[in-house]
Structure formats: C-alpha cells, structure tokens
Design a protein around this nucleic acid. Structure first.
Length: 560
RNA sequence: UGGGGCGUCGCCAAGCGGUAAGGCAACGGGUUUUGGUCCCGUCAUUCGAGGGUUCGAAUCCUUCCGCCCCAGCCA
C-alpha cells in the first residue's frame, strides 16, 4: 500500500490546525439511505474517515434522512454494514438528521422571527415560473412580505397538517435576482404526508437538504464538511443559514470531484434501474460497482481503500481506468490468496504409461508469496484434465504449452509428452493420449532438462465440479453516462456477455472453503466462494483474471 | 448571452516563481515449476491557446478556447 498522499483538503486542514482555528477536526459521512453504497461513496468514506484517523479527530456517520419518500431502514442497515466492512468505526457517533427535526423546526421559527423566512402559497409550477431562468432574474412571490405573526401562524398550521401537500412551503427570504439560483428564496420546508421510517407520523413537514445539512453539521460541531462539486453553488446558501441563525459553530464546506469509473455507472438512479429492471441480480450482483457487489465479487476492503488512496482527491472531472482498481485487487490478493488448481474448460488427458490402478498424492505449495501458508497434497492418477486452451494441434510461434510431440510440465506433478490426439466424428478434440516421465515426479528431472510450459490440471477421479461465474465489464463503453446523454439507451450500452457460467473441475480441497473465501486458481485468476454454494454444489465468482501476457503475444501474432 | 467550477503524458495526479514527482496503462529486457509475482529499463524540452510581468513562469497578470455543474416542494 502506498503512503498517504497529500491533497488540497489536507492542506486546508493543516493550515486550520496550525493557525489554531481548530484544535481537532470533525468530519462526517452523510449518506441518504435511499440506495446501496458504491465505490464513489467509498472514496468519500475513505476521505472523511481517513482524515479523522490521520489527524486524530473523529468522523460521524450521519444519515441524511430528510425525504421519507425515498428512504428505508433496509438501506440504513446496508450502509452501516458496508462502512464497517471497509474497516471504519464511527464509535458513538451515529446520527440521523431526523433526530434533529425538532431543532430544525426551532431554527425555522428563528428565521421567520427575523423576517428571513415566509410561508409561500404559490403552486410548485408558479414557484418555478417566479424563479426566473439562468439569464433572467426571478420575481418576488406575492406572499413574500407577510408579517412575522402571519408566517408563524401559517407555519404552525403547516406543521399541524392543516394544509395539503403542495399547497404551501416555507421559503428563505434572500434575493430573487441573485445570479445564483439557489439564493432565489429557496424552499426550506415542504409538506409530505408520508410516514418517516424513524419519526413515524410525528411530522408532516420535512426540511430540504440545504436547510438540514448545514444545520446538522453545525449541531454536530463538524469542522470540515466535505461534499462533491455539484454542491459548490450551494455553499453561499450553506453559509447564509449559518450566518443568519444562532448555531453552535460554522463548519467549512469544501467540495471535491466525485469518482467516475470506466465501464460502469455511478448514479444511484441508474444502479437502481439495473436492479429494478432485472439487468443484474440485485444490489450485490458481483458486476455492480456497489460495495456489496464488490464484496461478493471477492474484492477486499484493503484493495478498495488502496484504490481510493491512489486516485487522489482533486477538483477536476475524472474517469478512472477500471484497470487501476483491478491492479489494486490483484496486488492485495497476490499476497494473501491460497493457490489451488481447477480447469474451466476441461480436456481429458490419459497418461498411457501410468499404471491403471495407481494413485498418488503430490505436494503443492499453498502460497509461494507466503511460506507460512504451508503445503497441501493433491491427488494424481492415470487420467487427468487440463485446460482446453493449453493444447493446440497446430501451435503458433512462441506457444509453449502442449502440442503433438511436445513435452510440458504438469504443475507439482510430472512431465508429459503428447503422443496422440483423439477426435470425435465431428473432428472435435476429445482426448489426448500422453506419456509421462516417471523420473520427473514433483516437476523436476535428474537430467535437469528445461521444459518451458507448466500446466495446471486436476485428477479425473478425484476432481469435483464447481459452477463458475465469469464476470466481465457491465458496459460496452468507457463512459456510459456520457453515451446516454448523447442519446444511446441504457440497454444497448450493456455488455451482453458480462456474465458467463461454466462447469469447472476443481481440486477437492476447494470444498473445504466457506462463502466469501477468496483464492487463486493457478494460471487462471482469483475466485471467491459465492453464498449460493451448498455442501454438494460449489459456486464460484471470478474476482479478477490473472494478467495474461500470452494473450497479448497471441493478439500481436494474429495482427501480422 | 447569468452564476459557479475545471483544463499538467492514453487514465488518475503532484507541483504553490527557480527550470515537469508518483501510480495505472503501454512498450522493451531479466528471474521464474503460475506466460502470475518480482526485478530492471523506456514513456511530457513541456503544462488548453495567445499575449504580458520577471534574470527566470505550469506556477503571477491578461485575453481567448474547451469541458462540467445549476432553473426539484431530490440529495
């Protein structure tokens, strides 16, 4: 893992600490519980919790649950689980904006009493019309100059449910001609006669984001309130509320660029669509960029955190290569994953000079990167399976796997030479007949001759079946969100081959693993045991392939 | 045509007036019982473009160009 990089937010924090503006810092991760967390949220989580760790401050987990229409406890639970799984701890500091509803209400009263907020009875359409446009100023609402008393009375009625949804709202009285649309008397309370998942039917008026967020931050004593770039325009409003109201403190909002990852989408709306329309099996489908999807895919918290560290924090729009994430996953897994053997597309090999009834056990190293992982025994006998792609009847240049008359090493076993190719009536290769060198047990020979290729294999008698899910990128194009803006439909951008299932043959030891365990199938890739597995039927998810330099060589050979 | 941001290698990203870090990708080579890992090497005379200030500019000023965000009673 890399050492921590600096960024402009750390510079601000370090200056604030040096100047004595703050003794300690308090950040927060403020998700709305209206969907599952994705890798973009991981960036924010790593930033906020990471900063708190680095500067020995603290980070709050706060649910921004001000819109009961879209929120649910299911999401609250999944979010907590994901943050924990990433390895962060909010300690005692778990909060809900809904816990502050009473306080927000009193702040609204304070604003009304100052003459800085009013109940507006314009319809939603009228409010839009009165707001003006990007280039023309807005018009003031006819309800703008009501007396404080009248506003107090009306707001009370709103709270008591005496108005219907859409009939009226509470608005801040700021400036209808501001070039910043957010300052044109923004709505701060609206009526929603919906049961809230935490406050039940206690409220029928709910504060908007702009009003609730800055106040939540101030109530919690947040020092640095980090959010994404699209809220930059909201900062004047954030500051306006905190300047007008008598709050415990005035946190500083700082914006950074959200993460975009190639070949996927990051908007909750679009991810929700993928789930609802059944393009994926759920929020935790291993193809999803969600934290739960990545977890099910076999990605580790360490890999994700390393990735978040490496992409950095800045303000320019970005589209990070998926290959960087894969690099982080491989790097972490290479150190810790146990090695096994398994063949995805089996091709039978009969070792003709190996005694029919003989069976033996060969010793294999569990992880060459970690001697403490120990060794294991793998069964071997006269019939084995190798990977179809490891044999070529007519091998191209530089192909040093098996071919007629060629000798290769079976990993941890013997050298074999292909003597005969057996085909069916259609001409498909169904079996290879080989001879082995008894002197080469373990993979070396006394004469020390070199064999270039080493193949993975499984014993035909002892191998077990496993259902393997091979995943590829979810989308065909690098930037689906951009293509969609250009008019392409979601559906045509999806990769129809993002999931392929194969029946593989694996060494029996794999049946001793538990759901969630990640391991390497040598020469093939990293895999993890899916929760759909049973004791009779193993289901594996391919986490990521191994780098394949032969594929590159072959691609170049075919170009010529 | 309003406001707010951003433009440094294919992708991220340092740089904060003293003469372009690093990572990913890519490309060479070495080691190797995983064509994996590991190791070594190559990869921006140039910082969106033009002017200016300065002994000296990616960094300061200026003009222009390009891209992103904002007209929810979403967050």
């Amino acid at each position: 893992m890399l050492e921590k990089k600096s960024n402009f937010i750390k510079q601000i924090i370090e200056k604030d600490l040096a100047d004595g503006k703050h003794k300690t810092i308090i950040t927060r991760f403020p998700p709305e519980p209206n969907g599952y967390l994705h890798i973009g949220h991981a960036k924010s989580i790593c930033l906020n919790f990471g900063l708190a760790e680095e500067y020995q401050g603290r980070c709050h987990l706060r649910f921004d649950d001000t819109n009961p229409e879209k929120e649910s406890p299911e999401y609250v639970e999944s979010i907590k689980e994901d943050v924990k799984w990433l390895g962060f701890d909010w300690g005692e500091h778990l909060y809900f904006a809904s816990d502050y509803f009473e306080k927000f209400y009193n702040y609204a009263l304070e604003l009304i009493k100052k003459g800085k907020a009013y109940v507006c009875q314009l319809s939603p359409e009228e409010i839009r019309e009165y707001r003006g446009t990007l280039t023309e100023p807005g018009k003031e609402s006819p309800y703008r100059n009501r007396s404080v008393e009248e506003n107090l009375e009306l707001f009370e009625k709103m709270k008591n449910g005496e108005f219907e949804e859409g009939e009226c709202v509470l608005r801040a009285k700021i400036d209808m001609s501001s070039p910043n649309l957010n300052m044109r008397d923004p709505v701060i309370y609206r009526i929603k006669k919906i049961r809230h998942h935490r406050t039940g039917d206690k409220w029928c008026i709910y504060p908007t984001y702009d009003f609730a967020h800055c106040l939540s931050d101030a109530i919690e004593g947040i020092t640095h309130s980090l959010c994404t770039l699209e809220f930059e325009d909201h900062r004047p409003l954030y500051d306006w509320f905190l300047d007008e109201l008598n709050t415990p403190c005035h946190p500083q909002q700082i914006e950074f660029a959200r993460l975009n990852l190639s070949y996927t989408v990051m908007s909750k709306r679009k991810l929700n669509l993928l789930v609802q329309e059944g393009y994926v099996s759920g929020w935790d489908d291993p193809r999803m960029p969600t934290i739960s999807g990545m977890r099910r895919r076999g990605y580790t918290p360490e890999a994700i955190k390393d990735f978040c560290e490496r992409i950095g924090i800045a303000k320019s729009d970005n589209l990070v290569d998926y290959s960087l994430l894969e690099h982080c996953v491989r790097e972490d897994l290479n150190k810790r994953a146990l090695r096994f053997m398994g063949v995805l597309e089996p091709l039978k090999v009969v070792i003709v000079n190996y005694p029919e009834e003989q069976e033996e056990e060969l010793e294999a190293i569990n992880n060459p990167e970690d001697p403490s992982a120990g060794k294991r025994k793998i069964p071997f006998s006269r019939e084995i399976y190798i990977e179809k792609s490891d044999f070529r009847e007519d091998p191209p240049r530089k192909f040093f796997r098996l071919a007629p008359g060629k000798e290769v090493r079976l990993r941890y076993a013997y050298y074999i030479t292909c003597e005969e190719v057996v085909k069916d009536e259609q001409g498909n290769i169904v079996e290879l007949r080989c001879t082995y060198d008894p002197e080469s047990r373990g993979g070396y020979t006394p004469d020390g001759r070199k064999v270039k290729g080493t193949l993975h294999w499984v014993d035909a008698r002892k191998a077990k079946k496993a259902k393997v899910r091979l995943y590829d990128r979810l989308f065909l194009v690098e930037n689906p969100a951009l293509e969609e803006k250009k008019g392409k439909s979601f559906k045509e951008l999806l990769n129809p081959e993002s999931l392929k299932e194969v029946e593989a043959l694996v060494e029996p030891a794999l049946y001793g693993l538990k759901p969630g365990d990640v391991f390497q199938l040598e020469r093939v890739g990293y895999f993890c045991v899916d929760r759909d597995s049973t004791s009779e039927s193993l289901v594996l998810n391919r986490t990521v392939t191994l780098k394949d330099s032969w594929a590159k060589i072959e691609a170049k050979l075919s170009e010529k």
